[in-house]
Design a protein around this nucleic acid. Structure first.
Lengths: 239, 239, 239, 239
DNA sequence: GATGAATGAGGTTTCATTCAT
DNA sequence: TATGAATGAAACCTCATTCAT
């Protein structure tokens, strides 16, 4: 799951454990709940969460990104996977479960990554630069998830099940805003900018780029980041 | 339709002519084409045949903005208007016609306004500033349309009927990019920024603000514009 | 709606007003909720609740009675009515709404009727006789509703929406039990019978008869009632 | 299988022979018909090939009783047993096979028991009393089966496979009705009661009690039976 | 015996749209 | 203009059942 770029930038994530704690419902069908307990699961293999399942999630993510969550039908996804729509329900509770898995996965990952940058204790300016680079760095490996987030946020945020989206958003905002404020305090950033406003503009600029960013185009995501940092730090004016 | 702010800023729009030429289909139902004869609208009455129609469009725009185009049902709109869903079809061909009217109206307006700024023949830097102010200025009067554009663009752009969206977008891009390039040529803007990239970031930053911008909040749209111009021109660094 | 027999027996119900207050949700689609208020409804006509709708309810009741609630599909009902399944949703919220209307209608009616008998202030023995006659009297006009109640009670009672079933049942039980107790006090009924148990046996015997009772058979419902009263009051033994 | 009470009352059942002849299809999967040869079960081992199977039937019966046959899914049963739904098909042909086993088991048992009472050659009055006691006595050990019979009869009776239900019902009816008639002939029972009607009322009253009868409540099933006999024989009136 | 994946038929519901009145 | 009834396509989802491993 080419998160290599992301991991390199931060160096904190050791293995590919899928953490879905953020989401209240990981979407796994409740099949064997009353289970007897005698269910063996092979020698030592740690869950593994089904490669099939992960494959399906990835397919769905592509479709959601391309056509939007609502416009993508369960049949679309099933056809893409070469099965019947009903068969999808062997793996997922509902269409919502799928998008939940996509988004909660992305969110837990990005938040840990952000925290990793902050924990490095760099100067505010370098921290902001690090966060920006990190964010742009997710554009490619998490293109689908980010696109869904951008396009369907408004629709999804209204549902109880996705309350964690708003919650996570707030947490992330705090990380950035605090860093910007620290930068103002230590004299790195201008006093006459509004930290919250500035954060939002940065955030939006980065995520929204997913709409037109094409991997393998003129600029790669690294180039994008550097370009943006330049403008963001020093403006477009000559001095 | 409080476009006052916008009109003042530019001074180009004289009357309330509804220009729908951009859209291939103006969305008017063919129903009453062979008009019976009882149709009043005499010579001196410039009154649009339907304030009712405009009212309905506005209601629909609010709903589309709030819940998304797809998630808003024709019934939702009808209910909001206090009529039955079938009755809407006396005013509009289809659901698409309504959103078409919303978006095409916004686009023709914004494009004329942009052109008006450019035609003033100011310096590149002042022109860019004017465009940015203009764009932020639309946030309030056109909140619904912009929101729809932001959220449902991806879905709508795939439909033939909305091909004009992409076309208009390209025209607008050219206006901005040309101005930025002119600014680089005359030494106002740094040579090491990518004009196209820079335009996109500016554009996205402005429009995406519609997601969190609340009229009557801490900053009005004018304040937002000035804040952004500051950052955009000179960066967030102290110098 | 041949409730004639029932009404005669009691003489308290004046018109065919459909009272659905017992049910928390009458099942009417929420169509014009935000309604403007200007909705006129003809000169003086008191609602009328759509004969079409009532017709559909009756068709559905027959099917539910014949095949059971779960085994009856929405398509079955629609076919019986000569329309498509989706069209049913113009009249009803859901399949549940239909059965709700059937049962809540029956319950409000029977409870009022019971109360009417009690309010006549007859002796306990005559009151019980009246109640039994009344109950048997509903077998024919409310055959479908009673059948549904008998067969699907267990399934329906588990749903929030049908909580009123259990509530109504308790109220009815109180009416009967109080009367039986009064009969014990005034010496009409034996002291060594359990009022609650006795009520339940009477109730079950009556309702369950719906399973085999055929109008136009050897015994009509009046005959059934008299036969049962005989056995219930004096037993099957010769004395 | 605590049929102790039942057996004691009658003393006719000698061994645990599972008699499924009544049912046209015993429900055993044809899977292991050509048995490999490793099938133990030798001479001395009377152990039923599958206590597991019986356990599953019992689990299923509980669920059918609680939620109804149709509302209980194969998955529900499997989960309760701690296996996957597909695995159930190693034990049973189909969902119907399970309920068939439940009901046919109950029916053969109760019919033999009834016959046993009749064969004792007691007076009609004592025979009826015996039958009533016997029926009430099944309420506890066969609660689940009786509940299923009561609630899902209507649904099941329509299926070919369950034709035996109606057939058995008729046989049972004959036993009772003949006894009642004999009682009328010998002067024990009133001439002015309808034997068939009377039988049905008794039968219904007993079985329907399963809906509210709670073992361990105020009255046990023996108490219930005595109470009912009192009312049935002598009525609720004082004399 | 059990798993895990899939089937296929069918279920309820939604919704844009049409049209006679 | 509006209503009220209906259409028809398609949506999400359920579930008994099958079968290779």
């Amino acid at each position: 799951m080419s998160t290599g770029q992301l991991e390199q930038a931060v160096g904190w994530r050791r293995h590919n454990e899928r953490v879905t704690t953020t989401s209240t419902n990981s979407g796994r069908p409740k099949a064997n709940e009353g289970g007897g307990g005698t269910r063996r699961r092979g020698k030592g293999s740690p869950a593994l969460a089904s490669e099939r399942r992960e494959h399906l999630v990835k397919l769905a993510a592509e479709l959601f990104a391309e056509k939007g969550f609502q416009a993508t039908t369960v049949r679309n996804i099933a056809e893409e996977a070469g099965i019947l729509s009903g068969s999808l329900y062997h793996h997922f509770d509902s269409k919502e479960s799928i998008v939940d898995e996509i988004l909660s996965g992305f969110f837990t990952e990005i938040m840990s990554a952000y925290q990793g940058v902050i924990d490095q204790g760099m100067s505010p300016r370098d921290t902001i630069a690090g966060l920006v680079r990190l964010a742009f760095g997710t554009l490619e490996p998490h293109r689908a998830a980010i696109t869904v987030m951008q396009n369907d946020w408004n629709y999804l945020k209204g549902m109880d099940r996705f309350a964690y989206l708003t919650k996570s958003e707030d947490e992330v905002e705090k990380m950035w805003v605090d860093t910007i404020k620290a930068g103002q305090k230590d004299g790195s950033f201008r006093e006459d900018i509004d930290p919250k406003l500035t954060y939002r503009m940065i955030r939006d600029t980065v995520w929204v780029a997913v709409r037109w960013f094409k991997p393998g185009g003129r600029l790669n995501s690294k180039g994008l980041a550097e370009h943006y940092l330049k403008v963001m730090f020093d403006g477009i004016n000559t001095h």
